[in-house]
């Protein structure tokens, strides 16, 4: 596995994903992770899956309020907000 050529190891890359994806790492560290992902297919797969899970979960939990509940909300606010 040529990922050993980069300074950061696989576990360090995974541990830093939150800051890496938000561009919040110092530039040198970000470069190290970039290099690691370029040379480590398992980490690249993991990165894609990590990102995809969040995106898919966000889409799945979008819920429209059922009409009956929306009507109850309207009724409640009509009585309470004066």
């Amino acid at each position: 596995m040529n990922c050993t050529k980069s300074k950061a190891n696989c576990k360090e890359c995974v541990d830093l994903l939150v800051d890496y994806l938000e561009g919040a790492l110092p530039s040198e560290q970000e470069k190290e992770l970039d290099e690691h992902f370029m040379g480590c297919p398992p980490c690249l797969d993991f990165l894609d899956q990590y990102r995809a899970s969040t995106k898919l979960a966000r889409e799945a939990i979008e819920t429209e309020m059922p009409e009956a509940l929306a009507a109850k909300l309207g009724e409640f606010l009509g009585k309470s907000c004066n």
Partner: peptide
């Protein structure tokens, strides 16, 4: 050494 013991598999992420 911080290397994968169990590789994340599958192309679904892409």
């Amino acid at each position: 050494e911080g290397r994968w013991e169990i590789f994340p598999t599958g192309m679904w992420g892409r």
